[in-house]
Design a protein around this nucleic acid. Sequence first.
DNA 1: CTGTTAGCGCTTTCAA
DNA 2: TTGAAAGCGCTAACAG
Lengths: 320, 320
Amino acid sequence: MANIKDIAKMAGVSVTTVSRVINNHPYVSFEKREAVLRAIEVSKYEKNINAVHLSKGKTFLIGIAIPFSNHPFFALIVEGIANEALNNNYKLVLFQTNYEEFREIEALDMLKQKQIDALIICSRICQWDTIDAYLDYGPIIFCEDTRDKKVSSIFMDHYKSFSKALEYLHFKGHRKVGICVGRRTGFNGEQRILAYRDFLNKINEPFESEYIFSDCYDFENGEEIVQRLINMNNPPSALLVSNDQVAAGIVTCSKEKRISIPHELAIIGFDNQPIAKIMNITTIEIPLVEMGRKLFLRAINNKNISQEEISVKLVERLTV
Amino acid sequence: MANIKDIAKMAGVSVTTVSRVINNHPYVSFEKREAVLRAIEVSKYEKNINAVHLSKGKTFLIGIAIPFSNHPFFALIVEGIANEALNNNYKLVLFQTNYEEFREIEALDMLKQKQIDALIICSRICQWDTIDAYLDYGPIIFCEDTRDKKVSSIFMDHYKSFSKALEYLHFKGHRKVGICVGRRTGFNGEQRILAYRDFLNKINEPFESEYIFSDCYDFENGEEIVQRLINMNNPPSALLVSNDQVAAGIVTCSKEKRISIPHELAIIGFDNQPIAKIMNITTIEIPLVEMGRKLFLRAINNKNISQEEISVKLVERLTV
DNA sequence: CTGTTAGCGCTTTCAA
DNA sequence: TTGAAAGCGCTAACAG
C-alpha cells in the first residue's frame, strides 16, 4: 500500500507538496498538482488516518455512552448526535454501558488516551469524583443538570417537568397519584422522586412507598405494574410514567385486564414517542433529537463550560 | 502530558525498556521495571493510543453500519456485537446510515483509511460492485446470504423462514395471505417476496399486488396498514409481518377498529421481541444477540471467508 | 510556489 | 537484559 513518500517519488515532488494537494492547501502549481493527482490515481493511494491523528493529536471521533441501545429515548438522542456529527465530519464511538460502571470508565479511558476527542455521557453511572479525574483529558458533556458543577451539559429539568405533569394530574382531579421511574438513584431519579414528594406535601397526601414503581424501562415492564396495581387494595387513580414505552405497556395490559383508561386509571407518559401518538397516550414531549444535536455541538466546542436547559411540553391526549 | 521519552529520561532507561514495561514484555530487571513504574506513577503518564495504532497498523475498532439505531431488530444485533466486543477488547464505531448510500460509503472509507479494523454491514445499501472495491482493505461482514459471493456472512435464510411462516398460515386454513415487509429492494426483501410468490403458486392463488405492504418498519406503520385493509373490498385473512413492532401496531389498531384477531385477521410477526410476548403475537424467533456475537467474531478473525446460516423458530401464540 | 526537515509517540529489530 | 536507532505515515515550521 502506497504512502505519501511513494507518491512524492512517483510524482517527482516532495512529500510536503503531496500533503498540500491531499489537504487542498493553496500554493501548488497546476502541473505538480496534476502530477500528484495522477500518482495517487495509479497507485490507489489512501492516506492512513492514524498517522494523521498522531500528527494532529485529534481523531474526529466523539464517544457517546448510553445504557442501552435498544431504548427509544437514547436512540433518539443518538440520532440527533449522529446527524450533527455527519455535518461536522465526526464519527461516533458507541459505548453501551448497560449501567455497568466499568464500561463507562472504558469510555473515559479512551478519552484519556486520546482515541476520542470528547465524550458525551447520556446517563452517568460513575460518581462525580471518578469523573473529575478525567476532566483534564478532554470535554465531557452530560445530559443532566450540572449547574452546580464545573462541567457542561444539555439537560431537561426533571424536577420541573415531573412537577408539571403531577400538577396536571391534580388539576384533572387526581389525588392518589403513583409514579413509574427507571433508576431511583442518579441525579435524575432523585429529582423526580423529590418532585413527587414535594407534590404530595403540597396537596397534603401521604407518601405511599408502594406508589413508586422503579426499574421501569420497557414495554414489558407494564405487565408487572398492572399486576401489582390489581393486587393493591388502595391503588392509585393515576400514574405518571417516566417513559412512553412503559406507559404503552401499562395501557395495553390494562385493556386486557379490563381496567378502563382514563376512568379507573389515568396515565401520563414521557417523551412523546410514536407509540404514544398511536395509542393516544397523554405525554410530555422532550425534543430529544434537538438535544442530541446540541450535545454534539458542545462536545466539539467546549471552550467555556455551560449548562443549557431544554424545555418540555405537555401533549394532551386520551389517557388522562 | 508526559510521553514515553519523558518516562525513559525520568527512570534513567531507554524508551525500549519503558515500552517493554508498559506492554508487559519479559527481560526487564526488577529495578528498572520499578523505576519505570514509579516514573509513570508520578508523571501521570498515559500512552497515546494513536501512536500505537500508527505503529501497529491496527486500531481495535470495529465499524458497524445499521440503518436505524432506534429499531429493536438492529439494537439487538448491536447488543450481541457490543457484548462480544467487550470480551475481546474492541470498541465499536457506529454508523447510522438511514439507508443513505453515502453514509455506508463513509464507513467503507474508514476501513480503507484503517481507522477501523473491520466493518460489519447489517443491512447493505450499496451495490456489490461498490463493495468489491473495498474488499482488499479489510474484512467486511454481512448479515445476508452471500453464499454466491466471496465475502463472509452470518445470515438467516429469509426465503426459508418466510416460507415456513407462510406454510403455517396455510396449514391454519388461510389462503388469502398478505405480507408486510421493509424494503422491497435489497437481497433480503427480494428473497421474501420470492418466497411469497412461490407460496402463492404452490397453493394456486393469484398474486395480488395490494396484498404486499412495503416500507413497514415501526409500530406506527401498523395504523396505515389497518386503514388500507379496511378500505379493501377483498382483504387478506392473514398477514405475515416482517417485524414484531409493525405486527404490534397492526394488532393494536385492529383492536381499536374492532377487527377481531385472529378470527377476522391472523397476524404472524418476526423476531420474537418482548412486545410480541406481551401482546401474545405469534412470531418467528431469530437469535439476534447470538447473531451479533458471531458477526463480531468473524469480523476479528476472517482468515478464510465463510457463510453461516442462523436458523429460526416458530413461536405459536394467539394471533393465528 | 516548493522542498527540507524535524517532529508526533510508540514498536521493534538488531547488536551488544 | 538493555539500548540505539530505524521506522510507522503524515503535518507544519521554516528557509528558500
